[in-house]
Design a protein around this nucleic acid. Sequence first.
RNA 1: GCGGCUAUAGUACAACGGUUAGUGCAUCGGUUUGUGGUACCGAUAAUUCGGGUUCGAUUCCCGGUAGCCGCCCCA
Length: 417
Amino acid sequence: MSNKYLSTDSYKGVRDFYPKDAAVQQYIFETWAKTAESFGFERYDASILEPSDLYKAKGAENAELVNEQTYTFTDRGDREVTLRPEMTPTVARMVAGKRRELSFPLRWYSIPNLFRYERMQRGRLREHWQLNCDIFGSNDYTADIEMIALAYQCLIDFGATPDMFEIQINDRALMNRLYQALGVNEENIVAITRLNDRRDKIDTQTYRTELKAIVGEGILVEQIIMMLDSSDEQTDVVIGLAELGITNVVFNKSLARGFDYYTGTIFEFRDTAKENNRSLLGGGRYDNLTALFSEEAISGVGFGFGDVTMRDFLETHNLLPSDIYAPGPTVTIIPTDEEHNLEAQKIAKEIRSSGVSSAADIGTKKVGKKISEASERGSKYVIVVGEDEVSSQTLTLKNLQTGEENSGPISEIIKQI
RNA sequence: GCGGCUAUAGUACAACGGUUAGUGCAUCGGUUUGUGGUACCGAUAAUUCGGGUUCGAUUCCCGGUAGCCGCCCCA
């Protein structure tokens, strides 16, 4: 190929949303918003650009993360900026900024697009959207329950049934106590948590070997494994969820979900379908969200739900409604000839003014084709406009579903729609 | 950052070390010059790029690029 023309591909790792994809995206966003608002969550939003310091502030490890896995650049004013890789620092900034005037607990949600510079794989692109829901300023365990119940409802509202996914729960604070009771030191707890994060990806022997590498030979290895595998924990959160009728819940002591961030309850929803056996969403509780901005500690519990995994889930379980994409106006006006295009526009305008969507098909195809296309695009009615209609000032409204036709002046036609 | 697999019309696939690289869907046109969905007929349209082996490469080899899958990581 010559390089005379630019490529029509989108930038690596990001997506174009052609109308059919945009329709799916819109359906997902609208359903998310509706569910979050049904729980009384308020919507907020922010710019995709943040000063890089927001992400680097927590230390060298974060700085490295920012440098290697984010889109970071210098603006014309010599400021270092980053395309937000997650929403939590942003919302923490916003909450901290208005902490004097906000009344807690707060229920906030947003559907931001997030960027990360890394290699793509199934369910992970360089730009994605995420439903972000958080409750700020409540330390009560029922806030944890509410967040999980909201995430649960998000799936139910798409038509999912509880057997399609499984809720895994763990508790950082509880795990720390359990490890400490076995005499594991702080440093090793972090290492074990890290190892547990990929426990379901490695086999039992490898796991045992790596665990030994951390805590050394001896009885402790077996004690830890036994402790992790006794997953019959009935925590307040698990019991509370059951009382709300949510029972597809498993307490999994190996669940890790990253390292620094979370301090209490952590949770993850997993698709139970074999072909899409992955994490759908994750979240948890963090103690001091606003530590970077002020001394006042505001706790939070929240989750993020990605649009890519959402769509994969819906497709895997065949939950996408077939009528999402119906771009045609309710009434398509079909001029028989180009000379009647303007007349068709006038009729469409009048129909629109009555509150019904309408557009003229000003293409050059034959009437038959135009009717066929109007039908395929989801129009309910067509009105053909040619010599006869213009001279007689009488239109014929055709119902595409029933084939029924009715004639009359435009004022009559509009009443019938 | 690492590894595996793949690359053919718009798309989904097929085929071949050698004549004209096939098919479905989509698109456009026609059968029907003003009334739809079906049917039939026709048309447009492709071997990712660079190098090598060869009389001849779309096919085999090497490299680039891109995509998919996984690892690492997932704030």
